[in-house]
Design a protein around this nucleic acid. Structure first.
Length: 110
DNA sequence: TTGGTGACGGTAT
DNA sequence: TATACCGCCACCA
């Protein structure tokens, strides 16, 4: 078989990206979820999720997606803080998100 | 084609 | 409690 472009695989990748962005959009204001939680829903590893947001995360509320410990890379943390204050997201004195209070599980939607 | 990299996560020290 | 290291896996140069 001639090695043509695998369009099905490319389409699968596109649907995967769309799935991730859809989950992010479903996170309620004032709540956050983690890369790992999204990974569990879309069926992939957490680094994949971060990679997707890095490339296609601009149009979605990316600040509602944080690391498992509730923190974000310093630069993004600066951009996210205003959103947290505006949405009333529970924060800790460290500047990270108060995970036990703010975590939203995309699988149980609570 | 091969190798390096990363918006992470968990475990070990 | 903080730091280091490894595992994972697709994307980019």
């Amino acid at each position: 078989m001639v090695t043509g472009p695998d369009l099905s695989a490319e389409d699968a990748r596109e649907r995967y990206v769309e799935s991730v962005l859809t989950v992010v959009e479903q996170v309620p204001p004032g709540r956050v979820t983690s890369y790992g939680a999204i990974a569990g829903v879309v069926g992939s590893g957490p680094r994949r999720v971060g990679n997707v947001l890095a490339r296609h995360g601009a149009p979605v509320p990316w600040w509602r997606v944080v690391r498992a410990d509730g923190s974000l890379p310093p630069s993004h943390e600066e951009n996210a803080r205003p959103h947290y204050l505006d949405e009333g997201t529970p924060l800790r004195s460290t500047g990270a998100v108060d995970m036990p209070a703010a975590f939203w599980d995309p699988e149980t939607r609570e």
